[in-house]
Structures are given as structure tokens and as C-alpha cells.
Design a protein around this nucleic acid. Structure first.
Lengths: 181, 181
DNA sequence: TTCATTTCTTATCTTTTGTTAAGTGGTTGT
DNA sequence: ACAACCACTTAACAAAAGATAAGAAATGAA
């Protein structure tokens, strides 16, 4: 699978722009679009029982995001997907996407398994990180895996993503700094 | 998708038996079989840098397990898959599985997306549980989601799976008991 | 049954995390 | 430039978790 074919596919689809803080997919939505991020950053989050936003994931340039709950589980979205920065995305309807890719041999590899594998790899490796790594190790891994994102989003989002509080992340960061002296 | 077709497929495949503690898939293996558990329980685990076994997941009757690292990521298995009890599994080669299911309309739905979705749903919801739930809530969810497993495996495996130590799980359990008084 | 091994619990101590709140610094919008 | 807001840090305290060890309970093997 290569990014070139992917890009080719999305280049001919609708492009949409969102301002910072715009919702791209609303909570409870059942829409089944695939979004390819050309520019910007998007996060998925829920509102918990205390009324606080909890960020689950972030997506940046060349990443794909979709309403996973609808596409994979056929349920309404648990998350709101929101632009963190001004964001441009290519949008393509999921069914149309399947139709196009299944007819074009050059795009066949892009078919549903490709997305499945991309998403599952991410989800699976993330599960592994919670079982095998400490919070500090998860933070270091996040920084290493997302060098192009880490300085563009609030630390509180990162804290949520790795499953700790913002205060705890701040302490981990200062501990790391003091170790390097 | 229904279990009946799945069962039909596996019924005609090889059946293998394993004793307790037998390895079914060895660490670093690249084999691409799909296993359907007819009887017994299987766990996947790693040996960490301290030489301790850390259990990642358990699978019981009617569950499917595979060498995820090989099938999805084309890498050698990070895990050993081991029978916890005497276990009987139906085994089918992944490529053969794809061939059969793609030719038989009744089995088409079983095709790779089905397994992809089953595995991804599990991985995804598990990631969610680490971000949105506390250790105690994760334990309660595990018990609720796995009533047929929880009393058949050591608590230390459950502790690993939900990302805490066995000692901590023991304390959580006693806290839950004392609340119910 | 008896002995050996493994798991579970409990205790102690240390470390980390959660919670709340206050203060600092930076950003945004008017 | 100024005020208002937001994120980050730090502090203080409480709660939970990690590490280690010892004893109890359960399991398995002879």
C-alpha cells in the first residue's frame, strides 16, 4: 500500500475546510465518511459524567479518520471529532469509496482492509502500550511517535490520550527534565 | 454475520488438541493460522525485561485467535499463545480461509473483514476502557464481559490484562466486597 | 492423603497518581 | 494595550498503586 494511490483517490473527492474548534463529526452522528487530513489537526473526544471533555485520539496531516463507531460497529458516534487547528480534509463517502476501490485494480489495495488494518494496528498497539508500559513510557512513546503533533496540541489532550491527568503529566515532564541533569 | 456459518467452516478443518500449558503459537512465529476455540482457554503473553510473564489477552470457547502480529502487521509474533486448560481448536490456514470464504457466497461475510472487525472491535473498545475507565471499573467490566472466563483463570492474568499488578487487583477486590456490606 | 508449588491475601513502605486550588505565563480578542 | 481566558506548573493532601515479603489458601502431583 502506498500513500500515492491514497492521495490520488482523495484528490478527486470533495475538499472541506474547518475553523479551529469546528465540529467535523458530531456526537451521535451516523455518517459514514472517510476523511483524509490534508492540513491541520483533529481530535476525537467525549464528555464524561462530570461534564469534562476527555480526548481519545488526535489525527494530523496524512492521517485518515472516520466515524469508527458507525463504520465498524454500525452505531452512532460516541465521539465528537473537532478541528484543533484550521483544518482541510478530503471527504469521501464510505460506500462510494468501497465502490471505486473495488473497481480500480490500482486502488484495490486501498479497499476496506487497508483502513481496517490501519485503524486496528493503531488500536492494537495502543492496547499493548497500556498493558506493557508505564505512564512515563507511554508519554515518551507518544512524543517519539508523534513528533509533528506534540508541540501543536495542549498537553492536557496528550494526558487524556495516554490515560492520565494533566497534572500527573506535568509532573512526569518535570521528572524527565530533572533526570537529564 | 452468524456463528453458524463460522462453525460450518471450521467443522471441516483440522482439529487439534493441546494440554494445559502447551504453546499453540510460539513467540517469533510467523505462522498464519486462524484458530477457533471449541473447548478450553488460551492466553497470549510476553516475557518482559524482568523475565516476568505478562498476559495480554485470553480467549475462550467460540472465540477466534490468530497470530495478529503476522496476519495484520506481517511481523513475527510478539506473543506466545498458550493453552490455560486442555484445549481443542479448529485450525485453518489463513490463505485457505480467504480462498474458501471468497468463493462461497454463504461464507463471504466471513471474509477477512469479519475477523478484522471482530478483532478491531475488541482492540478499540479496550483502548477506550484505558482512557475512560479506572482500574476498578475495568475490572468490573472484565467480569461482566467475561462471565464464562473469570473463574477459570488466575486473577494475576486478569490483573495484567487490565493493566495493573496482581496485588493491586486483590486490594480492588477486597474494596468491592467491603462496599457491599 | 501428604507434600510441593502456585496463587491470593495482607502488611509495610515507597512512589505515583488523583484532586483541588493557587499562582504564573502565554494567547486571544476587543 | 488591556482584560479575559486558558493551559501549565506547583503545592498540599488524600487515595491508590507499585514493590517486597510473609503467611494463608488453593491447586497439583506423587
Amino acid at each position: 500500500m502506498n500513500l500515492k494511490n491514497l492521495y490520488k483517490l482523495f484528490r478527486n473527492s470533495k475538499i472541506k475546510s474547518f475553523d479551529k474548534e469546528d465540529a467535523i463529526i458530531a456526537v451521535n452522528s451516523k455518517e459514514k465518511n472517510i476523511f483524509f487530513i490534508r492540513k491541520g489537526i483533529v481530535r476525537s473526544y467525549i464528555i464524561n459524567e462530570k461534564g469534562e471533555e476527555v480526548t481519545f485520539q488526535v489525527y494530523a496531516e496524512t492521517n485518515i479518520f472516520t466515524n469508527v463507531h458507525s463504520i465498524l460497529f454500525n452505531e452512532p458516534s460516541k465521539f465528537t471529532y473537532e478541528a484543533i487547528e484550521a483544518t482541510k480534509v478530503y471527504v469521501i463517502d464510505y460506500d462510494l469509496f468501497l465502490e471505486i476501490t473495488s473497481k480500480n485494480p490500482n486502488l484495490l489495495a486501498l479497499n476496506r482492509t487497508y483502513f481496517g488494518k490501519r485503524i486496528i494496528k493503531r488500536a492494537f498497539q495502543r492496547s499493548e502500550s497500556f498493558v506493557f508500559l508505564s505512564p512515563e513510557e507511554r508519554y515518551k512513546k507518544f512524543v517519539k511517535d508523534n513528533p509533528n503533533i506534540v508541540n501543536r496540541i495542549p498537553d492536557m489532550y496528550i494526558a487524556n490520550i495516554i490515560g492520565i491527568t494533566p497534572v500527573s503529566l506535568s509532573r512526569i515532564r518535570s521528572r524527565i527534565v530533572s533526570k537529564n541533569d
